[in-house]
C-alpha cells in the first residue's frame, strides 16, 4: 500500500519539476474576478429566494410572527401527523395535536414510518433557491432529513445570502460538519432529460421563513 503511495507521489513530483516553490502564494494569486458580493437589498433578496425556491418545486411560507401556529397550519394543511424533530429543536415551536418524535438515534425503519421531519436550517442562498443543512442539534443528523417523505424547514430571513460565494464564506466556521445543500425536493433528469420531482429524498419541501 505504502509502495503505491510513494510511487504515485514520486511520479507527480517528476511531472512537476519546474513549479514555483511557494504554493500558498501561488494559490493566493489565482484570479477570482467573479461576483463574490451580492447587490440586492434584503427585500429583493427574499423575493429572489422565493422565486428560485418555487422554480424547483419548493414552497415558501411566511411566518405570522407565531411560529408555533404557523407550523400547526402548514402541517395540518399537508395532512402530516407524525413528525421527526431533531433533539435541539425549540420545544416552544411545536404545536399540540401532532405527534413529534425526538430523533435520539431512532432506527431507519422508524424514520421511514414517520410522515415527515421538521428542522432548522443554517442558511439560504437566494440565487439558487438553496437551503443548507448542517449536522447540529436543531437540524439533526443527515438521515433524518432524508428518509421521511416530507421536510418542513424553518429558515430565518436574516440567514439568506444572495450568492454561492457568500454562502461558502458563512459556512467556513462549520466546514468540518456534514453539510447538505438542498435545492428543491429530490428530483431526477435521467429519463429523457426531463426533470421529475421526487425520487429517493423527501418529495415535498416546505420552507417557513421567520
Amino acid at each position: 500500500m505504502s509502495n503505491s503511495r510513494s510511487a504515485i507521489l514520486a511520479r507527480i513530483r517528476a511531472a512537476n519539476q519546474n513549479r514555483p516553490s511557494d504554493r500558498q502564494q501561488a494559490w493566493a494569486l489565482l484570479p477570482r474576478n467573479y461576483c463574490a458580493q451580492g447587490t440586492l437589498n434584503p427585500t429583493e433578496r427574499l423575493q429572489l429566494f422565493d422565486e428560485r425556491l418555487r422554480h424547483y418545486n419548493g414552497t415558501p411560507f411566511y411566518s405570522t410572527g407565531d411560529v408555533r401556529t404557523d407550523i400547526a397550519k402548514i402541517l395540518s394543511d399537508r395532512g402530516r401527523r407524525t413528525l421527526i424533530v431533531p433533539p435541539g429543536l425549540p420545544a416552544e415551536w411545536l404545536p399540540d395535536g401532532f405527534r413529534f418524535m425526538r430523533d435520539e438515534n431512532l432506527s431507519k425503519q422508524a424514520l421511514d414510518a414517520a410522515d415527515g421531519v421538521v428542522t432548522g436550517c443554517t442558511l439560504g442562498i437566494a440565487l439558487t433557491g438553496t437551503i443548507v443543512l448542517e449536522s447540529s442539534p436543531t437540524q439533526g443528523r443527515r438521515a433524518a432529513t432524508l428518509i421521511p417523505d416530507y421536510h418542513l424547514c424553518i429558515l430565518r430571513k436574516d440567514d439568506i445570502v444572495e450568492l454561492v460565494p457568500e454562502a461558502i464564506r458563512c459556512l467556513e466556521p462549520v466546514k468540518d460538519h456534514p453539510l447538505t445543500f438542498c435545492s428543491g425536493p429530490s428530483a431526477t433528469v435521467d429519463i429523457e432529460m426531463t426533470r421529475v420531482r421526487g425520487v429517493h429524498g423527501p418529495r415535498t419541501l416546505d420552507v417557513l421563513l421567520i
Binding site: 443528523r141 456534514p178 428543491g184
Partner: peptide, 19 residues
Amino acid sequence: GERMNPYNSIWTGVTPSDG
C-alpha cells in the same frame, strides 16, 4: 442545466451518531 442540483453532500471523515 440547473442553478443548483437538488443535493450536494459535503462530509469529512466520520461524525459520531451521524452517518
